[in-house]
Each structure stands twice: as C-alpha cells, then as structure tokens.
Design a protein around this nucleic acid. Structure first.
Lengths: 335, 335
DNA sequence: TTGTATGCGTTATCAT
DNA sequence: ATGATAACGCATACAA
C-alpha cells in the first residue's frame, strides 16, 4: 500500500511560510528565531499539519529513538509485566520500543541482537538465556536478571534478600520445618540467589530446611515424588514451602491439594514474583513481590543515561512480601 | 552514549571491494551483477561486517517496515497473547512492532495514533476504545474487536458463534436453567455479540435462561447479590452459567464457592477467551477459546496486503470449546 | 538573525 | 553490466 504522496515536508512548510528551510528547522528544534518568522512558520506548520520525519532526523543524528527489548515471550505474567512497564518508561521519554520475543531460543536471541543493531537501535534491554551472546560494543546494552560481564549493567530484584525474607516470614509464621523447591535454568543468573538467601535466612533463624532442585530435563513429577516421600501417616513433615516462582507454587499447590494437604493450615506456601491473576486481580499466592515498575525504570534510565560516570555492573532493587492466601497471618496482621 | 563512528556503510564496502556504490546496492538487493563483482562485494561485506541501515532505506522508499500496535496493556492474558502472536507474525515478515500501551485512555489512544503517523509507520493495528478516533486515510489501519467503519477492516473471533456454542455445550452437559453474566464496555463492539449468540443458542435448545448485565460503573457486588437472590434452601437455581470472559468466570467461581456451591457438581461454568494460568498451564475454566494466533496472522496479513482487491470490513474467525475443569464432561468425552 | 549548501546512507536514473 | 549522480527529509556549519 503506497502512502499518499501528500505528506508535507519541511520544504513545504518553508514555501508556505515564505522562509528558508533552515529557519523552519530552527523553529522545530526550538532554536532562536525572530518572532515574526517564528509565528509565520508555526502557522504554516499548523496549516499543513506538518510533522517531522523522525527517520530522516535519525539519519542525520545517528539516533533512532528506538530501543529493542529481548524477552522470551509476553504471555508469562512476569515477562508481560516487564514489557508493560518498560514500554511505559520508554514512551514517557518519547522512545519507541522494538519488541523481540525470543521464545528461549538462543540462536534467535543472537539473531535479534544482530537485527536490532542493523536497525540501528539506540540500545538494547535483554532478558536472555544465551550464555555467549555476541554484543557489539557500539550498542548500549542493559541485561535483566543475568550478569553479562562487568561492562554491561545488570538489573534485577534483590533475589538473595527475597529468599531470606521468605525464610524469615515462614519462621515468623510459626514454621518449624520447611522446604525449598526450585526448577528452571541451571545457567548462573540472579534468580538463582534465591536459594542462597533462603538458606541464609533459615540458618539465621535456626529453621530446619530441605531442598529439592530439579535440573534441566528432570520431569516435574519428581516434586510430587519428593513430597510424597515426606508424608507420614497422611501428614506432610514440612509446614512451610518456599517455591522459586509463583508459577511453581501454583503447581505445587495443586499437587498438595491432590495429596490431601490443606493450605495454609497444614502447610504454608510462599512463592516469588508477585503474579496476580489476570494481571490485576488478587495474588496467586503469598509471595515475594518483584518491583517490576522500578526495574523497568532502572533499565531505561541506565540505558539512556548520556554520560554515565560509572556504569554500575549490578543493580539489585528491594523486594517486598505480600500476603496471598497461602500463609496463615492472623487476620489483623496482613502486611 | 554516542555511537562508535566505525559503523561501515555502503561506501566503505564499495571502497573495500573496489567497485562503485551502485554495484554494492545491487548486490545487497539481489539485482543482476557480474559474478566476479558479486563475489568481491560479498567478501567485502563479510569482511567489514556491513549491515544496511534500514532507516536510510526507509527514507528513500518512504517505508519504515514498522507497524504500531495499540492495545490497553500487555498484562491481561488475552492482550498479552495478542501482543505475542502479532509480534511473531510481524517478525516473520521482517517487520518491526511499535508497541503502544494505552491503558484504556481514549486521549492517549489518539495521541499514539498521531505519534505513530508522525513516526511514519507503515500501518497500525488497534484494539481501542475511543469511539471517535481520527485516523488519517494515509495510514493503513486494522481494528481488533471493534468495527470502525466500512473502510477499516475489523478482525475478531466469531463471538456470536461462541455464545451459541456455550449455550449448546451447557445444554449438552445436561443444564436446564442457565444464566449469562456480563460486564465491560457498553461501547458497541464484537464481543457484545456473545450475548446474542448465547440467547440464540438457548432458544434453539429450548434452554431456560436469565441474564445479568452490569453497566459501566455498577459495582461488581451486584453479581453476588444476583446469585444470592437465586439461591433457595442453599441451592442455586441455575445449573449452568456462561460468563462473558474467563476473567469474570474466575471471579464468579470465587463467589460461588463462598456461597457454598460446588463446581461443576452444582453449577457448571463456561467462560470466554481461553486464558491459561501463567500463560501456558491449564485453562482457568472451561471456555470458548479465541483463535489468537490466527487473529494475529489475519491482522498482519490484511495490513500488509499490497493490493487488496476488496478489503473485507469484518473478519470473524472460528472459536472452539475447551474443557477446563468447571464443567462435568464424562471422563471419556473431553473434547 | 536568516539563508544557503552540504552530507547522513540508500536507491534509482541515467550515461558509459 | 557498471559507474556516476541526484534525490529522499532533515540538521548544521558557514556565508550573507
């Protein structure tokens, strides 16, 4: 579909206003121009409904006002939330977002990075899984949840503190024997620190704990097996479980219900992420909430910072605990 | 952050290969070129790691290879799914996507449309709520779920058939007295046809039905009141309920459970959309599934179609029914 | 202060 | 078939 050939350009405005091209440019960019000229130009702009062609602009300035976001998908709630907030942060600054869904495909990740650079984006924000991505130095990059070397800033929530908080919460809520359940990438990334934080929290509270960590490829049923092995006379020996994500917690809750365990009476569950049903309803479970909006702002900030005095290699943002029905706070004390 | 000044251009390639600029352009665009030249150029391209600047390309061709997507947000599951699939469909065709989250703000919708046109996008896909959006004829537009006049194609799922299917399913599943629950925009849009389809289905099956439709602004508690008014001796008089969305179904299920009703034993529930927990787990409820992937493809197809012989004003894509635990199919017959 | 001219990277129209 | 050159819309250094 060929565009109508009547999109006005600066030249048209100049002709309409009876001034030179450069003058129009100056008016558009807010540079000093004689008042009488300014008014003539502004009138002409309004009359022709002129709008600058930001691509031609970019060609000159070698800036596209576009940043690329690489993310596995937009359907899993945590990713969806990131996309939403990063989009808002960018639009607020008049930046466009080039969305690239990678589907965890490491070669697709590399392909999109190349494509993004070919499209001359001003920067890239990436939540990626390819351990050896090649990123041209010329394009600013900010990573989410996985450090990619000292020269590339990484933004994450404070996963260690989150794990610790989960342990402390369970202790506060009266648990005596807890478990940590984890699945996911074995790649070293920030979320992996949830485990260490949890252990740390358990130790500091002298809370007895056990861990079940599924490696890549191990079937999910291993969790069910693990839990069944800890049921004696119909009673689960754990009274608290910390799941590495809300998604896992959701599945574990279903298993526990199948096994006849009552939540939170028999066993309390805490997840991680802060996922809400349908994106805006109540929490899926009691959870450690990631500050997604702040993470988004931080990514954009770091990426667009013109003169970064010292680019921080890792920024961890504070997490909070939220009640979501799978823990037994007393009615008055829902924090 | 100023970009490194060493991004190679066609001129560099030409110099490296010892040929003229035009020859490089031809090689890049697959136009006929002598074999010996072609090889020299290709080698130079590889050596310099040259990539075409698509913005300069766009400046010439008056094409940006970018389309804008206007959508309320990316966190509600149905929207998230649309964003994901439209993104895939576009990337498949080497098109970029400019994502604009409107948050149901009608003036933001208009603002983004203007901005999109200023950014010279090649087209716009919009799921919008502003009843009088101004869209320049020069930018191709495809609407989702709401017709915006005969000149603008609208893509939706077959909402009428979906409502009908829900009624028929409930009848098949043994229901004798059903209800339709709806909330949402009172704007005339495609999803509103679910009601008419449901009524039609009930009539054709001689199924007794009642409706409860909340207008904009009416508190959600009205549904609870409505349901309580239909409980006699602890028993709900409805044995089947069709909710206009899975999101509503989710809330209704919680209310019914609070009211002591067993699902699906006492009352069966069917929702609409096909939302899955966490985007990829099991269905939230038994539901009429929208063909999101097909809708996305259709939008992109219609938008990018160079010579549309006749642009269809409304395209309705077939929906399907999926079991999601809130209906009582016999174990063997889960379709 | 305002106007003119050049170049950004690419494509297309010419001569050669 | 290949090479030189103009043009796309804009910004800017420079001349008036």
């Amino acid at each position: 579909m060929k565009k109508n050939n009547s999109v006005p350009t600066m030249k048209d405005v100049a002709a309409e206003a009876g001034v030179a091209l450069g003058t129009v440019s100056k008016v558009v960019n807010g540079l000093p121009v004689g008042d009488s000229y300014r008014i003539r130009v502004e009138d002409a702009i309004k009359k022709l409904n002129y709008q600058v062609n930001s691509y031609a602009q970019g060609l000159k300035a070698d800036k596209t006002h576009t940043i690329a976001l690489l993310i596995p998908n937009t359907v899993q709630p945590f990713y969806a939330s990131l996309v939403y907030h990063i989009n808002l942060s960018l639009l607020k600054r008049k930046y466009r977002m080039l969305l690239c869904s990678t589907d965890y495909d490491t070669s697709l990740e590399q392909e999109y990075i190349t494509m993004a650079q070919q499209n001359k984006v001003d920067g890239i924000i990436g939540l990626t899984y390819n351990p050896n991505l090649i990123i041209e130095e010329s394009t600013p990059f900010v990573a989410i949840d996985r450090s990619m070397g000292p020269k590339i800033p990484c933004v994450a929530s404070d996963n260690f503190a989150g794990g610790q908080l989960a342990a402390e919460k369970l202790a506060d809520l009266g648990c005596k024997n807890v478990a940590f359940l984890r699945t996911g990438s074995s790649l070293t990334n920030e979320p992996n620190k949830r485990k260490a934080g949890f252990e740390n929290g358990c130790l500091s509270r002298s809370l007895k704990y056990e861990m079940k960590i599924l490696n890549d490829g191990e079937p999910f049923e291993e969790f069910e097996k693990f839990l069944m092995e800890h049921i004696y006379n119909g009673k689960l020996s754990f009274d608290g479980i910390f799941c590495v994500t809300d998604s896992l917690a959701f599945s574990i809750i279903q298993i526990l219900q199948k096994l006849g365990q009552k939540i939170p009476e028999d066993v309390q569950i805490i997840g991680f992420d802060g996922v809400r049903h349908f994106g805006n309803k109540n929490y899926v479970c009691s959870t450690i909430v990631q500050p997604v909006s702040e993470m988004a702002e931080m990514c954009v900030e770091l990426l667009l910072q013109e003169n970064m005095p010292t680019r921080p290699p890792l920024v961890c943002l504070p997490v909070t605990y939220a009640y979501g029905g799978t823990t037994s706070e007393t009615a008055g004390a829902l924090t």
